[in-house]
Simulated assay, not measured.
Amino acid sequence: MLDKRRLHAPGSPPCTLLFVAALTITGCLSFWLLNGCPGPPLLVSSPMVAQSPAYVLILPGNGSVHPRPYVLSELPPDDETTLIDVRNFRFVINHEPCNKTQPLLLMLIHSAPSNIPKRMVIRETWGQRRNGAIVLFLIGTDDKLQNQIEEEDKIYGDIVQGNFKDAYRNMTYKHVMALKWATYHCPGAKYVLKLDDDVFVHTPAMLEFLSHDLSPWGARRLILCDLMAMAMVKRSWRSKWRVSPLEYPGKTYPVYCAGWAIIYSPDSVFSLYREAQKESYFWIDDVHITGTLAKKVNLTQTPLNSLILKKERLKAVLEKQNSPGDFLFGPANMAESDIRALWYIVTSKPWPSFN
Rank of each mutant, 00 (worst) to 15 (best):
Y184P: 02
K154G: 01
G140F: 07
H185Q: 14
I134S: 03
R130I: 08
I159Y: 01
I116C: 10
Q146R: 12
Y168L: 12
Y173V: 06
T183G: 02
A182R: 00
K180Y: 04
M206Y: 10
P216H: 07
D158P: 01
K118H: 13
L179V: 01
T141D: 15
D142L: 06
G127R: 08
P117Q: 15
H175A: 13
D196R: 00
S211C: 09
F209K: 06
K165S: 13
K118I: 06
V160F: 02
L214H: 03
C186P: 05
K165L: 14
E150Q: 09
E124V: 02
D166Y: 04
K165R: 09
G132I: 06
S215H: 10
I139H: 09
N131G: 10
E152W: 04
Q146E: 15
P187S: 12
D198A: 06
M120Y: 09
A178D: 08
W181C: 02
I134Y: 00
E208G: 10
N163K: 14
V121A: 11
N131R: 09
G132Y: 06
F137P: 05
A182Y: 00
A189I: 10
Y191N: 03
N170S: 10
V192P: 02
A205P: 07
V135K: 13
H175P: 00
E152N: 03
K174F: 07
R130K: 07
R123H: 11
R129H: 14
T172C: 07
L136R: 11
V201F: 04
V192H: 07
F137A: 08
I134E: 03
D153G: 01
Q148C: 08
F164W: 12
V199E: 10
I122D: 01
L195Q: 09
K194Q: 13
F200D: 05
